[in-house]
Design a protein around this nucleic acid. Sequence first.
DNA 1: GCCGAACCGTAACGTACGGTACGGTTCACG
DNA 2: CGTGAACCGTACCGTACGTTACGGTTCGGC
Lengths: 212, 212
Amino acid sequence: MASAVANSEEVFTPRQQQVLTAALDLLVEQGDRLTMTSVARRASCSKETLYKWFGDRDGLLTATVQWQAAKVKAPQVDRWRLDSASLRQSIEQFARDLLGTIVGDVSVTLNRLAIGHAGAEKHGLGAIVLENGPLAIRKRLKPVLEAGREARLLRFDSSEEAYRSFFGLVVRDAQIRLLLGETFTPAEAEIARDAARATEQFLAIYAVHPAA
Amino acid sequence: MASAVANSEEVFTPRQQQVLTAALDLLVEQGDRLTMTSVARRASCSKETLYKWFGDRDGLLTATVQWQAAKVKAPQVDRWRLDSASLRQSIEQFARDLLGTIVGDVSVTLNRLAIGHAGAEKHGLGAIVLENGPLAIRKRLKPVLEAGREARLLRFDSSEEAYRSFFGLVVRDAQIRLLLGETFTPAEAEIARDAARATEQFLAIYAVHPAA
DNA sequence: GCCGAACCGTAACGTACGGTACGGTTCACG
DNA sequence: CGTGAACCGTACCGTACGTTACGGTTCGGC
C-alpha cells in the first residue's frame, strides 16, 4: 500500500532532474496533455527509463511536483526586531513572495495539474501543492504574527485566522482568475504595490494601533 | 468559426435538461472522467441523441456549465436604505451568498472542470465560469458599494479594487483548498459567522467611520 | 580489451473512449 | 391504419496514448 502522501525527501540524480525539468517545461507549455513520448523526446531519454525511474505517468508527475515544490524554500525572513516598522516590512515581504509566486506560470500550471487530479479522486498532488504552497507560507508567517502579538503590536485570537485573512487580502481573486485562464502578468511594480496595499489593510484590521 | 464564448441565452427542452442534470450529477460524482456512454446511460438516452443535441463532448460540457451557471441568479438585494446598518446588512448578505456558493459541491466541480479546460488551451468554460461566478457577484455588489460611497459611508478610489478585497476577505484560502481536494463542508452557521467577520473586516478598511 | 549494467531509440501491444451507423420502437398527425 | 420524425439501444470503427519489449550503444570496473 502506497502511503497517502510521500513526504520523504526524494533525492534525484542530475540526469533525473534534467528529465523533471523537461517534464515541467512541457507541463507549462501544454498542461496535462503531455505524453510520456514527448517527455522522453524532450529529455532525450527512453520511455523505458522513464518507467524504470518513476513507475508510471502519475509517478512522473508526482515527482515533478514534489521536486518543484521543494525548491520554493523562500528565504526565511531574518531576525526581525519587534518594532512596528520592521513588523510591517516582514509582512510586506511575505506578501510580495506569496503574490509573486502565485501569479507565476509554474504555480498556475502546478495548481491546475493538482486540481485536475483532485477531481479524479487522486488527492496526492493536491496534498503536495497544498503542503508546499499556502501551508508552507503560513508556517513561516506564523511566528512573525505571534511575535507581533507578543509585542502588543498585533491583536488576534488565532494566528490561523489571521493568516487566512492575510492570504485573502494578498491573493484576492487573482489566483482563481489565472487558473480559469485569464492571462495577465503583473509587473514587479504592480506586485509590490499590491503587497503594500494588502499589508496596509491587514494592519488596519489586526494592528493594535493602526495609525502607527 | 464558433464564437469564443457563446453568450446567447440557450434554451433547453425539459428532456434536454434531464440530460444536463444527469451530466452534472456524473460530473460531481466522478469529475471530468465521465464518458458519453455513462451520460447516455444515466439519462436513458442514446449517444446519437447526445451528439445530435450537443455536437460533441465539449458541447455537452459547455451546455452543462452554461445551464448551471445561468441558474445562479442570486436574488438581487432589494431596496437598501442608505444608513450604516442596512449597508452592512447588504454586504453581509452578499458575503453569505458568495461563500455559500463557493464551498458547494457544484461550484467546486464546475471550477475544476473549467480550470482543467483552461489548462488545455480551451478557455471557453473558464470564461463562462468567470463570467457567472466572481464577475456576476461583482456586478451586483458594485452599485451597493457606490451608493455607500455616495452616502459618505464608504471610502475607496475604485469599486473594482474594493470588490476584490471584499472577495479576498470572504473567500480567503477556502476555494483553493477545496479545489485541491481538501474536504470540509462548513455548516450554515460557520458560513454566516465567516460572512459576518469578513463584513466587519471590510468595513474596518473601507468604512468612513469604522466604529459606526 | 572484456563484461555487465544502465540507457537510448523505436517498434509493437492493449485498451479505453470519442464518434458513427443502423435496426427497432414510440408517437404525433393525417 | 399509414407514414415519417424523433429517439433508444447497441454494435462497431478509428485513434491516441500508456505501457512493454527488444536490439543496439555507451561506459565504468577489472
